[in-house]
Design a protein around this nucleic acid. Structure first.
Lengths: 190, 190
DNA sequence: AAAATGACCAGAAAACCATTTCGGTCATCT
DNA sequence: AGATGACCGAAATGGTTTTCTGGTCATTTT
């Protein structure tokens, strides 16, 4: 089997379980059934692996989002389904939550940068969708990047911040409802 | 002059300047022109003082907000002016910013609790205003506490998170605009 | 020969301990 | 009776030693 892929999967597993700092290369090697040195024939260093792992996660999410978007449907409808898709991801991918937690607790610089990259990526993606909505006349004119920022941060507030205080995570339908009733509704033209 | 008050003011000054941890009781005593022991005739401990300081700050903000609310004006109009009032506070009261920073950097438990209290207080206040809006028929029916949560978090995202990445804080009119165009707009009935 | 490996190294992190600081008390003073 | 600051123990700080871990490379395996 593809050794490179094997290592990547081992790293993903370990990062999700123990965080970035908590993961040792020895550990990754063991999980991947590979000598430690072998890792360095495929990746130049630990951070590189994190980047690849996150990159592939982002790519996966983007593909999932793009595939849910239907050009025939309205901006709001698409917004809802994309949001739902994102919410499904939250369950499956513990990695993000782990990274965010780690950034808050340990302040690992590599992780901070990574999260910033994810944020930028996510926001610019949302902004581009908003711009499309505006040009189609479905969304009223607004500062797309700022609205995207608002959407992204709100999403995190409900998905990440919420369960750090309340014991149980907020239901997906509930989150969707709030977005429908407030931001999405507000963005709709007239 | 009222010794108690004097101590409270000294503490406020020191907390704003050096943070909670960075403030020593010796320091507070010196600023207040009081012996250290005297502080303990009015307050049982340091945390108690923080609570009082924050409480009076909250009270002050509430008064300011209440006074800007005009029963004759619409929910949205009032929302805007209250938001602006809050934004003014951010400039004048360094204390909140200092506390938030401290919570992130030092993870002082007392401070964390305090910020949580402020958040709860703020959210329930907003929620009550939303409920009034709903009963007046100005705001469409929605889960008031959750919407309040959204508003509060969004506010923090623009006021606190924003300038931690971008060098300059976001302009007040810009923040107001975003809220107008999205959440406030979405809340308006029909 | 090409690829894989794990012993090895240097620097980073953790553990440890000596020393200082600071919240809170209380005997003394006003 | 109220205020005070010297004093106490617990907690924080800082410096030192020890352990750990990312990354290398000489040796082994295929």
């Amino acid at each position: 089997m593809d050794r490179r892929q094997e290592i990547l999967e081992a790293a993903t597993k370990s990062f999700s379980l123990f965080g970035y700092k908590g993961t040792t290369m020895e550990q990754v090697a063991k999980i991947a059934n590979v000598g430690k040195g072998t890792i360095y024939t495929f990746f130049s260093n630990k951070e590189e692996i994190l980047k690849e792992v996150v990159l592939s996660l982002i790519k996966e999410m983007k593909v999932a989002m793009d595939s849910t978007i239907d050009a025939n449907k309205s901006f709001t409808e698409n917004g809802h389904s994309v949001l739902m898709k994102m919410l499904e991801f939250r369950e499956r991918h513990v990695l993000f939550a782990k990274l965010i937690e780690e950034e808050k607790e340990l302040r690992t610089p590599a992780v901070k940068q990574m999260l910033q990259d994810i944020e930028d990526e996510g926001i610019s993606y949302i902004a581009s969708r908003i711009d499309i909505g505006i040009s189609k006349g479905e969304v009223h004119d607004c500062n797309a990047p700022l609205v995207a920022y608002l959407l992204f941060k709100s999403y995190l507030a409900f998905v990440v911040d919420w369960q750090q205080i309340h014991d149980e995570p907020m239901g997906e339908e509930q989150i969707l409802d709030i977005f429908k009733q407030t931001i999405f509704r507000g963005l709709q033209k007239q």
